[in-house]
Design a protein around this nucleic acid. Structure first.
Lengths: 160, 160
DNA sequence: CGGGAATAGTTTAGGTATAAAATATTCCCC
DNA sequence: GGGGAATATTTTATACCTAAACTATTCCCG
């Protein structure tokens, strides 16, 4: 027989250990990506994330949509878009019917640059996670997706 | 028959999708932890991480050991320790034989505060990852550890 | 011993992040 | 149609984070 308290405590420890593992792996991949983006493209992960979000849609996204998709604060997006705009990789376009809003979209140059970076990005990930077979990657991704759905916490923050 | 290029491309896509899943989950847990630490304890995740590292050892750690364990830059640790020291949660102690080095350790108050926060922290994780059974958590953690070993990239950065 | 290489830590410059306040505009209801 | 609530974005204050430069000390080899 096992005391109930011990069962609960043990489950909790297992989940904590899993979290520490997940954190360790994701930080390592994250650090590599940041480093390579910096050295190979003179860019950063947040910039890449913004461009990736914009690349999905020729029409671009409003600032608030962008912060919703990326799940970061509004003020944060302002700064990143400011810097991308300085480099002429994105542009702010006023929204016809609403003088409050701005649509951000990739410029021609931004689209070309993103394509280059995305190709490299996928190759880096493929290299770093090369120890996963495609089958196992699919399986684990599916399992994570399934569990993420049940997990506590806001699934989406600002997506409207 | 399947074209070789297609096989390679497909594996790469699977790993990319896995990465996006991992990132999504870890960001969500991260955000929750940050939020709860802030509202419940008026603290932050980096502060918690530093205290957690120090809690393992009564003797404390040198600044460089701290940045090595946490895998963050030296300058970063300087700032976090500065702020923890202002709150009297940690203290810097000169190292007898080496006038360059400082050992950082939890104060009495810091140790007590960390114990409170760590208990809550484990409960939050347990709640957020509750969809994983302990068995599955153990299994996945083991698999991640195994793969992390093989994965490309620096396993340890500054640990000496 | 003397001096350059290595080590420990802080500082600096710039980008990323948040929450909260401020600004501007639009919506909508009475 | 006037005014308050809601929405879109920027600004502000503070903390995090890195790489690189800088200071101080220690190590070590000739």
């Amino acid at each position: 027989m096992i005391a109930p308290a011990q069962i609960a405590a043990s489950g909790s420890k297992d989940r904590l250990r899993l979290w520490l593992r997940l954190l360790k792996l994701s930080r390592r991949v994250d650090a590599q990506l940041r480093d390579r983006l910096r050295t190979d493209f003179g860019s950063t992960l947040p910039r890449f994330d913004v461009m990736a979000a914009l690349a999905r849609d020729d029409a671009g996204l409003k600032m608030s949509q962008l912060s919703g998709v990326l799940r970061v604060s509004n003020g944060n997006v302002t700064g990143i878009v400011d810097r991308l705009a300085l480099d002429k990789l994105v542009e702010r376009v006023p929204v016809p019917g609403d003088r409050r809003a701005m649509v951000v979209r990739l410029t021609q140059a931004g689209r070309a640059e993103f394509t280059r970076q995305a190709t490299a990005h996928e190759a880096w990930i493929n290299e770093m996670l090369g120890a996963f077979t495609p089958q196992e990657a699919r399986h684990m991704a599916a399992r994570l997706a399934e569990l993420a759905e049940k997990a506590t916490g806001p699934e989406t923050k600002n997506v409207r």
